[in-house]
Simulated scan of single mutants.
Amino acid sequence: MGDVELAEILRRQGITDERVLEAIRRLDRAEFVPEARRAEARQDSALPIGHGQTISQPYVVAFMTQVLNPQPGERVLEIGTGSGYQTAVLSGLCGEVFTVEVLPELAGPARERLGRLGFQNIRYRVGDGTAGWPEEAPFDAIIGTAAPEHLPPALYQQLRPGGRLVLPVGPRHGAQELIRVTRPLGGGAPQVEKLLGVRFVPMTSAPPPPFVH
């Protein structure tokens, strides 16, 4: 069962991209939250998923996806797999998702969950999200679901010319902003747009060595 009511809530809140709304509608958010929180899954709020992490508020997921504007056939890098909800939304909108999670305790269950739900165009990595996935670069679009204090240079360098990057930036404790960064086709300085005040868990580096499935 998908989240038809949730999609309609998001439409009323100003999400206008029909592809994004349909991606939300096709998913059951309850699949991506702990058993004890499933009754709250259709609320427009962030929820804890364990290990100090959260599943983002549905409006924020939809807004970030809308401003990222993933297109069919594109290769998208996601930093912060978490429960896999944002990954699943992206999967239905682009050609291939490359998702990196710093915590093996989240990465394994997310991979199992997304596989069980039938998602096939996703590749998984456990490792330092600030380093991106250089072996697979460049990417058409990059999205971050945790907040570094500043834009990690490696992520920008892995963006193709004309590509766009959406992520929250700011201190661990204090005001964070969601930004969209576009890499100009002809070179030059990054184009940075400030979009929304947000609050995300911090983006951290990984002590375990990265590995690819």
Rank of each mutant, 00 (worst) to 15 (best):
Q71R: 12
V166P: 01
F63L: 14
A110L: 07
D128Q: 10
E35H: 13
P184D: 07
L10N: 08
H51R: 10
Y124K: 10
G52W: 08
L10S: 10
A137Q: 08
P104I: 00
V76C: 15
E22I: 10
R113Q: 03
P168E: 02
G82R: 05
Q43Y: 11
P58I: 02
E8M: 12
L90V: 05
R38K: 15
I143D: 06
P58M: 05
G52H: 02
G163Q: 00
P134H: 09
S45H: 14
P58Y: 04
G174H: 09
G188W: 00
P209G: 01
G82K: 02
V33L: 12
Q176K: 03
A46K: 07
I179D: 05
F200Y: 06
M203L: 14
H213N: 02
A154Y: 05
G118W: 10
Q43K: 14
A62C: 01
L10Y: 03
E101K: 01
T182V: 13
Y59F: 15
P109T: 04
P208V: 02
A36H: 15
C94L: 08
G14K: 05
L47F: 04
I179P: 05
F32V: 06
E22N: 12
A88F: 00
G50D: 11
C94P: 02
T130E: 15
R38C: 08
Y85F: 14
E112K: 14
R125H: 10
